[in-house]
């Protein structure tokens, strides 16, 4: 039995959940709505940034990394795409990039870290 079948056996709805998110790629700017639990309260926090990679994108174990610069400090968060903590993903802007992993952004700041917009 292959991995997807095993996962399907356990939780059949996960495939649909993954398909429900908008299509995004490295270079795109997205907003991830993250559920945060504090005691019994639950609130939603937004994390806006550039997607710098999607890993294992064909499987249900997929993760993606979002990078943003906050107060001059680079912040990267890695999300498992099927994490129950993700409420919603919003696609803000499509980026025009030539690679799948934008690690080069880590060494750049300001004007050099810009990404061209992809116009369709």
């Amino acid at each position: 039995m292959i991995q997807a079948e095993i996962q399907n056996l356990l939780e059949p709805t996960l495939q649909e959940k993954k398909a429900s998110f908008p299509e995004f790629k490295a270079g795109d700017t997205i907003i991830v709505h993250v559920k945060i639990r504090e005691g019994n309260k639950e609130r939603i926090q937004q994390f806006k940034g550039t997607v710098i990679q999607r890993r294992n994108s064909s499987s249900l174990g997929e993760t993606f990394t979002v990078r943003k610069v906050s107060n001059g400090v680079g912040v990267e968060r890695i999300f498992p795409i099927l994490s129950p903590n993700i409420d919603k993903i919003e696609l803000v802007r499509k980026g025009l990039v030539r690679r799948a992993r934008l690690y080069y952004l880590r060494g750049k700041s300001g004007k050099a870290a810009r990404i061209k917009e992809k116009k369709s």
Binding site: Q3, L9, L10, R37, L82, S83, P84
Partner: peptide, 15 residues
């Protein structure tokens, strides 16, 4: 044995 996978478990405030 069928095989291995991973699962999200909610324990209080943490997943």
């Amino acid at each position: 044995k069928i095989g291995m996978t991973s699962i999200f478990i909610t324990e209080g405030a943490s997943v």
